[in-house]
Design a protein around this nucleic acid. Structure first.
Length: 496
RNA sequence: GCCCCCAUCGUCUAGUGGCCCAGGACGUGGCCCUCUCAAGGCCAAAACGAGGAUUCGAAUUCCUCUGGGGGCACCA
């Protein structure tokens, strides 16, 4: 379904104050999808107008996270573009110009109130159970007084002169018209005393100057949405289409994830920060698929989507305005789906770093043999070394207690192990076709269950209770090592 | 306190007046497959927050309530 035939220009506008989280990633994803689908542009704009909040490295990390997800931008601080600069801190003069325009047209005013006085006013309003708002002291100062006080070096900000009467109606694509009483709106500050614009003005100016057609952002902007509409109108500009996405709630569904809770998550192998996800074993394809489906759906049954699928199928009118609880269990499911969908050589390429990180010396040829037998057993990519590390160890240290078969005496277990060893030694190789039939025969003769006999072998050869299929694994390890490991098991059991 | 938004299984969701005694997915329980673990297959339990109204007919429209969420900075 094509939602718009006109090329869309959309922007993702994070502030470089922290890590890119899932909510932001989803917004960026939708931006990207709309741009690609309509043949438009996806713009990355850094909203760093508050330099006090600047976090070194945050901007670079946002770039890295987006790139990892496969979300490429067409214009941005690093790649440039025809509408730059793309960092708000570099656009100070531009905002000043429009702030002056608003003052000249009587739609903004210079305010000399000190933060201390405002604090006091707020406290008093609080006491009287009134909503905190600017009391209008400087709303109607004469032009002369203003220029005199500025000339005298008095600190001042610029405020929007919000209409006191009537109502304002703005339109959200998902929610329709939203109407508020103007008296509930404040005379918001547009330009700080240091001369830099605040978000409200800066975003409006940038969105207009950069020809943004769709503003997709979080629903935390809904309360100031009417103000934004008013600013565009005061400047005589046509508004973009506004789309407010629902917020992500914590897994319990009770409220947004707090900073502390976000940090705690990693202990369970989860994180809401994109930068952590690769290390936790998640595939970017899975992340994209999962977050795309939180707040958007295609139909009543399709659930696997690649980025190109999404570009083709995404549409704004299928967006869901209600808040969504983050569900990591389902995320793990998507991860498994995408791991299993990976071509084997690609799986090898992706899992290699996880082995290397754990100190394993791996080679592609062996990894390629292992790939098909562990692919469907990986919940996360980070499970690979634990599941298949034994392939790369010179020898393993099985736990004797696990080696012994429960229903047998230690001597009987040792005896059985000897028989297994003898059979293995007699074989020309330990390929699946060669090794399995004689072992099945042994199981039959022993009167034990296949699981018991193969279990002993599994522990002996892998030192793991859980492993990829035994005979397939043996084939990859090779007769020499298999026999050596079995011999060691015999020794261990005999010593019991 | 004030303002705004939202409301279908535990969770993510389909559903835009009759196709719905509500469909899919995750998770959960059971069964099958099986050398462990997975994967896969089959089956099951599980929801339209409440009350009014409109209508021949409402999960779908309207109102009230309730619940949940968000916001009320010289942050974004």
């Amino acid at each position: 379904m094509v939602s718009s035939s006109q090329p869309a220009r959309v922007r993702f506008a994070p502030s470089p104050t922290g890590h890119l989280h899932l909510g932001g990633a989803r917004t960026a994803l939708y931006d990207y999808l709309l741009a690609r689908q309509t043949g438009g542009q996806f713009i990355l704009r850094i909203e760093d107008s508050d330099r006090r909040r600047f976090v070194p490295g945050a901007e670079e990390e946002i770039y890295a996270s987006l790139r990892w997800l496969g979300i490429q931008w067409d214009e941005g601080p690093d790649v440039g573009g025809p509408y730059g600069p793309y960092r708000q801190s570099e656009r100070k003069e531009i905002y000043q110009k429009y702030a002056n325009e608003l003052i000249d047209s009587g739609q903004a005013f210079t305010c000399f109130c000190t933060p201390e006085r405002l604090e006091k006013v707020r406290n008093e309003q609080q006491k009287r159970k009134e909503p905190p708002h600017y009391d209008g002291t400087c709303r109607n100062l004469s032009a002369n007084e203003v220029s005199e006080r500025i000339a005298a070096g008095e600190q001042h900000v610029i405020r929007f002169k919000t209409p006191k009467e009537g109502t304002t109606t703005v339109t959200d694509l998902l929610r329709g018209d939203i109407t508020v009483e103007n008296r509930t709106l404040d005379d918001y500050i547009l330009v700080r005393s240091d001369g830099l614009a605040l978000y409200h003005l800066a975003a409006a100016v940038d969105d207009h100057l950069m020809n943004i057609t769709h503003v997709i952002r979080g629903s935390e902007w809904l309360p100031t949405f009417p103000l934004h509409g008013l600013i565009h109108r005061a400047l005589g500009w046509q508004e973009p289409e506004w789309v407010h996405l629902s917020v992500f709630l914590k897994p319990s569904g009770k409220g947004k994830m707090s900073k502390r809770e976000s940090a705690e998550l990693i202990k369970d192998g989860h994180s809401i920060f994109v930068k952590d996800l690769e290390g936790l074993g998640y595939l970017p394809e899975a992340v994209v698929n999962w977050i795309a489906l939180m707040g958007w759906s295609y139909d009543d049954h399709t659930e696997i989507f690649t980025l190109p699928d999404l570009v083709e199928k995404f549409s704004l009118d299928k967006l869901n305005p209600s808040p969504a609880a983050i569900n990591f269990t389902k995320f793990d499911h998507f991860n498994g789906l995408h791991i299993r969908a990976l071509p084997l050589n690609e799986l090898v390429r992706r899992m290699k770093p996880y082995f290397v990180e754990k100190g394993f010396q791996v080679d592609d040829a062996t990894l390629l043999k292992i790939a098909p037998i562990i692919q469907e057993r990986l919940q996360g990519m980070d499970d690979a070394p634990e599941l298949a590390g034994f392939f790369f160890k010179p020898d393993v240290n099985p736990d004797v207690a696990e080696l012994a078969i429960k229903d047998l005496t230690p001597a009987e277990s040792a005896d059985l192990a000897k028989k297994i060893l003898a059979i293995l030694e007699s074989l020309p190789d330990v390929k699946l076709e060669t090794a399995e039939p004689p072992m099945r025969k042994l199981v039959e003769q022993s009167g034990l269950k296949a699981g018991q006999v193969f279990g002993l072998m599994r522990i002996a050869i892998t030192a793991q209770r859980v492993s990829p299929p035994l005979f397939e694994s043996m084939e990859i390890i090779g007769k020499e090592k298999v026999v050596a490991r079995m011999r060691r098991a015999v020794e261990l059991l005999s010593a019991l």
